[in-house]
Amino acid sequence: MDIQKRVNEIYNELVNIRRELHMHPELSENEYETMNRICSYLDKWGIEYKKSVADTGVVAIIRGREGGRTVAARADIDALPVVELNDLAFKSKNEGIMHACGHDIHTAIHLGVARLFKEMENEFQGNVKIFFQPAEETIGGAKRMIEEGVLKNPDVDYMLSLHVMPSLDVGEIEIKYGKLNAATNEFTIRITGKSAHAAYPEQSVDSIVVAGNIIVALQTLVSRNISPLNSVVLTLGKINGGTKNNVIAGEVTLSGTLRTLDEDTRNYAKKRVREIVENTAKAHGASATVEFDEGYPALINNDEVVDALKESAESVLGKDKVRLKEYPSMGADDFSFFCRETKGAYYNLGCGNRDKGWTWPLHSGKLIADEEAIKVGVVLQTVTLMKLLKK
């Protein structure tokens, strides 16, 4: 099959699919209508699938000739609680919900990939799985899909995923070897002091003062406990405490996020946060606890898969359109769970158009993506997956 020619032929249909998805966005863990729409297209094209994986996910499989490898690609399908500010003909019909992270484009791309491989099922040896994954924005739907066995029977050898990026013009991609995205840990600090009347501070242990000292002390984690050559982010985003202006607070709660790029640094940073918080509180006569929520692990690309992607992209797009990302992002994506279990790679796909002023960032209510990115994504994913099948 001439993949580029075939993608051009089905492009308008994929655009219409994307616009339908864009008009009907659904939040994480509630992607029921989205799931059914995906299944309706898979039914139309005669593609085998399993629905209700991790409640609202879909796993499609295209079985080629017997033997060979199994490869997979992931498309996240959930939307965000964002008000759409664009006056488009296909503007969101669900008030306060928008595909502001481009997952509608991801879904359309991978429906196109599934269709092409179905049409080529006699031309390749092995299997192709497409995961339409829920809840990337919240609870980590990737982990739940893995726990339900999507990487097994047949076992996945290589895997790809992508994310649209408005800072890149359509027709460009950005790749990175090794560490790409940070691990996340949300945390809550609870400080317990002793409340008293504001006029008699000697009778209190002021939890607000303790909190202030903890906030300052935690700044030394990155500046003095971590090498400047290693990236760590610690952000305190919320503080609650006190009941009245003339009452010294007995309890204060702080919460924030910790971002790291490998497990050793992650474990060390968590240990130091506990030590700093507990000992600073103790020095002021208070007590404090720290609770960490395990978020997403660091996303670390496999060099072998990135090599295949780079070769495909340079062939399809040209060397000048393939950018090598120099530094990791401290943002996160739950595709990292897949990369822990199999050889995977994740890259950024240009969807911006500077000439038209379409450069608004992800998660913005003004995000407009150039739909030509669908065409580029389908071709690149298909060509790279085919290359990985032949490894």
Rank of each mutant, 00 (worst) to 15 (best):
I38R: 05
I38P: 00
S40V: 14
Y41V: 08
Y41Q: 12
L42D: 00
K44M: 14
G46V: 10
G46T: 06
I47F: 12
I47S: 04
Y49H: 10
Y49G: 02
K51I: 06
K51P: 00
S52I: 07
S52E: 15
A54S: 09
A54M: 04
A54I: 05
D55G: 08
G57P: 00
V58P: 00
V59N: 03
I61G: 00
G68D: 05
R69Q: 05
T70L: 11
V71N: 08
A73L: 14
R74P: 09
V83I: 15
L85S: 11
L85H: 12
L88T: 14
L88M: 09
A89E: 14
K91I: 06
K91L: 06
S92I: 08
S92Q: 15
K93C: 09
N94T: 15
N94E: 14
N94R: 13
N94Q: 13
N94H: 08
M98V: 12
H99K: 14
H99M: 12
A100E: 00
A100M: 05
G102S: 13
H103A: 14
D104P: 00
I105S: 03
I105K: 03
H106D: 10
H106R: 08
I109M: 06
L111M: 08
L111S: 12
L116Y: 02
L116Q: 01
E119A: 11
M120L: 12
N122K: 15
F124S: 05
F124G: 02
Q125V: 11
G126E: 09
G126Q: 08
G126F: 03
F131C: 15
F131H: 07
A135R: 01
E136F: 02
E136N: 12
E137C: 09
I139A: 06
G140R: 04
I146D: 13
E147Q: 10
E147R: 10
G149S: 11
L151V: 15
N153R: 07
V156T: 10
D157I: 10
